[in-house]
Write a protein that binds this DNA or RNA. Structure first.
Lengths: 154, 154
DNA sequence: ATTTTATTGTTGACTACTCAACATTTATGG
DNA sequence: CCATAAATGTTGAGTAGTCAACAATAAAAT
């Protein structure tokens, strides 16, 4: 009855390609957990953090539809995320000139401040967990996961 | 306003290690979506599928605590998952001789049948999406994601 | 043996996410 | 111009997941 370890995969594999798939998925889950915990005292969820980061990196107002397409989540989900962030005064909804269906979402000053603070903490952790990776390994990992993702569309 | 593509990452990167991290996380999300859709007509969620697979691969009754540790989710979550699977008659809860706190969870005959059927469909898809991967690439991807996961515990 | 601590499972309050249905508004085709 | 189609955001029901608090039970400490 060996105790499960966070690093172990939940089952054994006969096939390397299958192991790779499960390992990617599993690692993604672990990353999500790690960053949720890391930022928990600043923000309610990793998803809220992601949305703020996208808004900051994009550097211009985005509609909910754009956020939905960028983050690859259903637009109904964005509604709730935005509602929550608005209640915390981190973003603002502004009507779009010329399209009364849409809103332009922008960071508030406070939202911008918080996002920058969290980004520092986040980047520190990224450096920490990739400290053991050579440039070659990082490039390989990025390349292989990108390739895998490309093949998912079919 | 280029339309987002499922393969694109949501932001640009200055740093390969960072790109690798985001790419792993993002690919995990896409995998989850893909398999949810693939199995949707058979089962309510990828999580229910995972639980059934773990039960099948383990090949003996497991307590909810064991499932929680194997799947790395909170035990409170297992309660709900098991409740749902039980309502569908896919698993059974049996009291454990000698420990009145626990249940032994086992697949029903129907649960076993369904799991095997889903596994076939799942494995076909795994083969399909890794068709473009050489043995070397699969091994590298498995190795690098395993390595990344190892470094997450700190 | 009794007290204290740990384990197991459950519940309730939050959060994310999907999907289908809907209203409003904009774009398109006759 | 008008009728139909598409786009945008919202709502409600269903799913997963976390966390904290709780009850029951088992294990450990004294």
């Amino acid at each position: 009855m060996k105790p499960s370890n966070e690093s172990d995969l939940p089952v054994a594999f006969e096939n390397k390609a299958h192991e790779a798939i499960v390992s990617v998925w599993w690692t993604g889950e672990q990353l999500k957990k790690l960053f949720r915990k890391l930022l928990r005292s600043y923000i309610r969820s990793e998803s809220q953090f992601n949305l703020l980061m996208v808004l900051k990196d994009t550097g211009r107002p985005m509609t909910q539809m754009e956020l939905s397409k960028t983050l690859l989540v259903d637009r109904s989900n964005i509604t709730g995320l935005i509602d929550g962030l608005q209640k915390q005064d981190l973003i603002r909804r502004n009507r779009v000139k010329g399209d009364r269906r849409s809103y332009h979402i922008t960071l508030t000053a406070g939202g911008n401040r918080l996002t920058q603070k969290m980004e520092k903490i986040y980047m520190r952790k990224v450096k920490e967990i990739t400290a053991g990776f050579s440039a070659r390994e990082s490039a390989d990992l990025a390349r292989l996961t990108n390739k895998l993702r490309m093949g998912l569309g079919t």
